[in-house]
């Protein structure tokens, strides 16, 4: 073990850390924006409405994130329509491809978590909302979604950790995220232990941070479920 390699390359790791955080936070944000309408459509009883969201969720949860990333990064260039479109300047960049793949992927998982939470809404709450004369939209906004988010919180915490871990494959498409930094250090010094263990420690730290953050969040949102202090 030669710690001077790690210290010498610390700026590179910090740069990688910043890219990892950026990618994960943005993917989670856009993923959530997508997941809410997908989950709502998925809970419909009409096959014409829930068919497409079902297929979307099934595809993205049933195939590896790496394949999805490759389909976007290496694959989209196959189509001339894409190459000629105004989106090409973005889609030829590894950064935007990774962000797109991560967001689409986490949207599918998040939608499935939200669907479960929405379907578990106590029916009495829905009836009460109807009895108060709420419209469907108002009922979703005021009654169903707030309580569904609460029920979904523990499972969503796991999904955030999976997204962080999944984001490590960004290094496969040339991006210098945390693992990308580790790979550069390894190829420069041929020191696999130092380079990958350092990256691993950073990921471990981020994971603990997320676990702790969700614990705090749950303490707030699940305050009514905590045993009363006597």
């Amino acid at each position: 073990m030669d710690l001077s390699i790690v210290i010498e390359n610390l700026p590179l790791y910090l740069q990688g850390l910043w890219l990892t955080v950026q990618l994960v936070v943005m993917a989670l944000f856009f993923g959530m924006l997508l997941a809410i309408p997908i989950a709502l459509l998925r809970t419909s009883k009409n096959p014409l409405v829930y068919g497409i969201p079902w297929a979307y969720i099934y595809f993205f949860r049933g195939t590896p994130l790496l394949v999805q990333l490759f389909m976007i990064y290496h694959g989209l260039g196959q189509f001339e329509v894409v190459q000629k479109s105004f989106l090409w300047p973005f889609l030829k960049e590894a950064y935007w491809c990774a962000l797109l793949a991560f967001a689409l992927n986490t949207a599918a998982y998040t939608a499935e978590i939200l669907r479960g939470a929405i379907e578990q809404t106590a029916f009495g709450e829905v009836e009460a909302a109807r009895a108060c004369g709420m419209s469907r939209a108002l009922m979703f906004r005021r009654i169903i979604l707030p309580s569904a988010f609460r029920r979904a919180l523990p499972a969503y915490g796991n999904e955030v950790i999976f997204m962080l871990h999944g984001s490590a494959i960004a290094s496969v498409v040339t991006l210098v995220d945390l693992l990308g930094a580790g790979r550069i250090v390894n190829s420069r010094h041929f020191a696999p232990y130092e380079s990958y263990l350092t990256a691993g420690l950073f990921y471990l730290g981020l994971t603990f941070l997320i676990v702790w953050g969700f614990k705090m969040w749950e303490r707030r949102w699940h305050a009514h479920l905590r045993p009363r202090e006597t």
């Binding site: 496969v172 790979r183 696999p192 990958y196």
Partner: peptide, 9 residues
């Protein structure tokens, strides 16, 4: 720790 990190390690 991500699986890819462990695999490369």
């Amino acid at each position: 720790v991500p699986d890819l990190v462990l695999m490369l390690l």
